[in-house]
Nucleic acid binder design. Sequence first.
DNA 1: ATATTTAAAGACCTTTTTATCTTTTTTTAT
DNA 2: ATAAAAAAAGATAAAAAGGTCTTTAAATAT
Lengths: 140, 140
Amino acid sequence: MLSNSLAYAIKALIYISHNSSETERITLKEVSDSTEVPKPYIAKILQDLVRNNVLHSIKGPNGGFYFSEEGLDISLLQVVHILEGPDKYNKCLLSLKDCNASSPCPLHDNIGQVRVELLKRLEQITFRQLMQHKKSVDLF
Amino acid sequence: MLSNSLAYAIKALIYISHNSSETERITLKEVSDSTEVPKPYIAKILQDLVRNNVLHSIKGPNGGFYFSEEGLDISLLQVVHILEGPDKYNKCLLSLKDCNASSPCPLHDNIGQVRVELLKRLEQITFRQLMQHKKSVDLF
DNA sequence: ATATTTAAAGACCTTTTTATCTTTTTTTAT
DNA sequence: ATAAAAAAAGATAAAAAGGTCTTTAAATAT
């Protein structure tokens, strides 16, 4: 239901949210080791998130990735938009061009409700919330 | 949210459900023309559905695809299982092995509910229902 | 200044999904 | 029997997703 890359990103971000601050950065190696996502692959994903200001990073000794205070309030939906584009959960389930509330496709009212609910929840969930989840501490 | 192939399959099946019977078969060409799915691609999908008894087909002149009476009661979930395998909407959103109600991952209770609702609806919807949808007549 | 540590960038490879083309098999009408 | 109509099967190609490797750039400690 969620892509591989998105699930990896969420795991990595939860890990970083727990362990980082502006002064305590997490290295790529640590993220890769703890989340068990291949290093070059998670690197690509994190680079993308840094470019889009979800995370910050600093190079060199004692460098690494960290969440700023504001970053923690980024929603899952924003991460989806960055990694998969804005259309991922936002188009007609049958890819019809003229599907809408007044002229709905046969799935629009039924499965479409689920899609809308998914969007709503993705928008509500932030990393500040996720990091408070009890399991997220020993996820890794 | 749904794969390309699955959306194609659903469109084709809705079309066939409207226009076929054991004596009136729909040719591949007609399906391809009406749904605007490339012929060889929709052929592959329909073959798969025939092998799995969702549809029936007959070769030769006046041949084609048709839904049997029982076929119309096949659920969308069964089609998902055939085309995408049983795990598609059935595993932990973060792909954790030990994610369950008593030890849920951080998405389990929230996004997981949406997943369960999706499964429930996919299971309830049959082609007999979909063919009664008003738009499904002039979908194509 | 230099060496070391670390992320960034870019080239490359593999697998899966999407799509096309060609040949074969089956059925029917003549 | 033969020709035509149609699906089945299989081989191939293109694009996207997933994954790896190497080089470059930046920061820090010495």
